[in-house]
């Protein structure tokens, strides 16, 4: 059963992924158009979850649904053993049905999230390096970084960590040769063509240009993250004083 099932309407590929998950591919590569289909599908899943679904994970161009195979089995309890379908086939049929109901070219309304960043200082030890690499001044780097609009393609790697698309090539910088053992929470960095924000302290090789006082991972909230797949975000520069006030006001 490794053969994919083509969907006439959305052309999404439905593939088995072990006995407890199913993969739905909406295309290949990093593309806002493909991602919008991912988002439209997951918004529908939020409203009308599949029976037996445990959860889903959305990525750049695909959605993976994790399900309880025993619950799926129960759904066909009146079917004689020899006629029973694979649980995968039952789930695939439900996914296909859902995809067929989705409108062609349907879109979603993205949330816009603004994130304050204190660029440079001890927060951005690599800001100077990023400027030098791209033959720009530090102010130019800040201007370019804070004037882009970024799409949250997915959350992963760490709780609340956004994979962002849309950074200007003019500030692209390779990763550090040797990763830092610990990068503080809130760090804003650049790695190659990507920019991102670290929600929790972790080791990492990104070029750090600043820090946000905003918490991206909030244990006590539901959802527990500031950002979600499909959000559009903007960074805006704040002063050291504003940064301290923000931090102070929160505690």
């Amino acid at each position: 059963m490794s053969e994919s099932i083509k969907n006439e309407i959305s052309d999404a590929k439905i593939l088995p992924f072990g006995e407890s998950a199913i993969l739905i591919e909406f295309g290949k590569g990093i593309d806002p158009e493909i991602h919008s289909r991912v988002k439209v599908f997951t918004e529908d899943l939020d409203l009308n979850p599949l029976p037996a679904m445990i959860e889903y994970v959305s990525a750049f161009s695909s959605v993976t649904i994790f399900y309880n195979p025993m619950k799926v089995r129960k759904m066909q309890k009146d079917v004689p053993e020899e006629k029973s379908l694979l649980t995968f086939e039952i789930v695939a049929a439900m996914v296909r049905e859902k995809l067929c109901k989705l409108e062609r070219g349907a879109d979603y309304t993205p949330r816009i999230v603004e994130i304050p960043v204190c660029y440079g200082e001890e927060f951005g030890p690599d800001l100077q390096y990023v400027a030098e690499c791209n033959k720009l001044t530090v102010d130019e780097v800040i201007h370019i970084h804070s004037h882009g609009e970024y799409l949250v393609y997915m959350i992963g790697f760490a709780p609340g960590f956004p994979y962002l698309g849309g950074m200007s090539e003019t500030i692209a910088t390779p990763r550090r040769q040797s990763p830092r053992m610990s990068i503080p929470a809130g760090s804003v960095g650049i790695a190659g063509m990507q920019t991102g924000v670290y929600p929790i302290a972790t080791p990492g090789g990104w070029q750090l240009i600043g820090n946000t006082p905003v918490e991206l991972f909030r244990l006590q909230d539901n959802p527990p993250t500031l950002l979600q797949s499909g959000d559009r975000i903007r960074f805006y520069p704040i002063s050291r004083k504003e940064y301290e006030e923000y931090k102070g006001g929160r505690s």
């Binding site: 072990g18 998950a21 290949k28 990093i30 994970v57 990525a59 750049f60 993976t64 992963g156 994979y163």
Partner: peptide, 12 residues
Amino acid sequence: LEMVSEAVALGT
């Protein structure tokens, strides 16, 4: 292979 990140599962 040009691959973009996607979900992994227990036992992948």
